[in-house]
Measured scan of single mutants.
Amino acid sequence: SSCPGKSSWPHLVGVGGSVAKAIIERQNPNVKAVILEEGTPVTKDFRCNRVRIWVNKRGLVVSPPRIG
């Protein structure tokens, strides 16, 4: 992607959502990480300053967080 800084975090799958949020925002200060339960409807727009963290009912990351 053409967004500045780190853009994906595949190693965070299985980690707690709040831990993942802290790591992502520390590694790329340009983004705001948002924790969402899988299945939550979201907009389809692409934004360089957003990372969606998809978690299951136990709050664990279920897919690699990435910019968008």
Rank of each mutant, 00 (worst) to 15 (best):
N28F: 08
L36T: 08
E37H: 07
G14H: 08
V19I: 13
G17E: 00
V62S: 10
P10D: 07
G68Y: 06
E38P: 06
S1R: 08
V19Q: 13
H11F: 13
V13C: 06
K6V: 15
N56D: 11
P41K: 13
E38N: 04
S1T: 14
R66Q: 11
L36N: 04
N28L: 09
I35R: 00
R58W: 10
K6T: 15
V55L: 03
V31E: 00
G16T: 14
G39Q: 06
P64L: 02
V15G: 03
K21L: 04
R66C: 10
I23P: 00
L12Q: 00
S2N: 15
V34R: 06
N28A: 07
G39I: 03
L12W: 04
S63N: 09
R47A: 15
G16V: 13
A22C: 08
V42H: 11
K44Y: 08
L60M: 09
S18C: 12
I53S: 01
W54I: 08
P4Y: 07
V31N: 04
N28D: 09
S8A: 15
S1K: 14
P29S: 09
C3R: 12
N49T: 10
L12M: 08
S63Q: 12
E25L: 03
V42L: 06
K21H: 01
S1N: 14
V34T: 10
E37K: 09
P64W: 00
R26Q: 07
S63E: 14
P41V: 13
E25K: 00
D45L: 05
I24G: 00
C48H: 11
P41S: 11
S8D: 14
A33E: 00
A33D: 04
N28P: 00
I67T: 12
C48F: 11
N56S: 07
S7I: 08
F46K: 09
W54F: 09
E25Y: 03
E38C: 08
V51W: 02
K21P: 02
R50T: 15
V15C: 10
V62I: 10
R52E: 12
W54R: 04
R50Y: 12
E38S: 07
S8Q: 15
G16C: 15
S7K: 12
V61F: 01
T40E: 07
R26W: 05
R47D: 15
T40Q: 10
I67C: 15
V34M: 12
I53Q: 01
V51Y: 03
V34H: 08
K21W: 00
V62N: 07
Q27V: 07
Q27R: 05
W9C: 02
P41M: 10
P29H: 07
E25M: 04
S2H: 15
E37L: 12
K57R: 10
T40R: 06
K21R: 06
L36V: 13
C3D: 15
A22E: 14
R58V: 10
V19Y: 11
N28C: 11
K57C: 05
Q27T: 06
I67D: 06
V42P: 05
A22G: 11
I23W: 08
S7P: 07
G39D: 06
S18F: 11
E37V: 11
V31T: 05
N28K: 05
N30V: 07
C48D: 13
T40P: 01
R50L: 13
P10Q: 06
L60A: 07
K32I: 10
V61M: 00
R50K: 13
G59P: 00
I53G: 02
W54L: 06
R52M: 12
Q27G: 08
I23C: 08
V51D: 04
L12N: 01
K32D: 07
I24M: 00
L60C: 08
N28G: 01
R50F: 09
G16E: 15
V13Q: 01
V42E: 08
G39N: 09
S63C: 13
V55R: 00
S2I: 15
V34E: 14
I35Y: 03
E38A: 08
R26F: 09
P29M: 05
V51I: 05
G16Q: 12
N49S: 10
E38V: 11
I24F: 00
G5D: 14
F46H: 10
V13D: 01
T40I: 07
K32S: 09
P65A: 01
G68S: 08
L60P: 00
G17H: 04
G39K: 06
E38Q: 12
A33T: 06
N28W: 05
Q27N: 13
K21C: 04
V42N: 06
V19A: 11
R26C: 08
A33L: 01
V31K: 03
S63I: 09
A22S: 13
V13W: 02
N49M: 02
R26T: 09
A33P: 04
V31P: 04
K57Q: 11
P64F: 02
G68R: 04
D45H: 09
G5K: 14
A33M: 00
S63D: 09
V15R: 10
R52A: 13
R47C: 13
W9I: 02
P64G: 04
Q27D: 15
V13T: 04
I23M: 10
P65N: 00
G17N: 00
K6Q: 15
V19F: 12
P10S: 06
P64T: 10
V15P: 01
P65Q: 01
V61A: 02
I23L: 11
N56P: 04
L12P: 02
P65H: 00
W9M: 06
S2V: 12
V62C: 10
P4A: 14
P64D: 04
S18W: 11
L36P: 00
L36H: 06
V62L: 07
L36D: 00
T43W: 07
D45Q: 09
P41Q: 13
F46E: 14
G16P: 12
R50P: 04
E38L: 08
A33R: 02
Q27A: 09
V61H: 01
S7Q: 13
D45Y: 06
H11G: 12
R52S: 07
N28E: 07
K32T: 12
G17Q: 02
G5A: 15
V15E: 07
A20S: 02
V15Q: 14
N30D: 13
S1I: 14
W9R: 02
G5Q: 15
L60Q: 11
N28V: 09
E25H: 03
V62W: 00
V42T: 14
K32H: 06
S1P: 05
R26N: 09
V42D: 10
G39W: 00
S2R: 11
W54P: 04
G59H: 06
V13E: 01
P4M: 12
P4C: 15
A22Y: 08
L60Y: 11
K44C: 07
A20R: 02
K57W: 04
P29V: 06
N49W: 03
R47Q: 15
P10E: 10
K32R: 10
G68H: 04
E25I: 04
N28Q: 04
L36W: 03
V51N: 01
P41T: 11
A20H: 00
C48G: 11
V15Y: 11
I67Y: 07
R47S: 14
N56Q: 01
G17F: 02
V31C: 08
H11N: 15
R50C: 15
S63P: 01
G17V: 03
N30C: 13
G17W: 08
V34S: 10
E37Q: 14
A22I: 10
K6D: 14
G59L: 00
I24R: 02
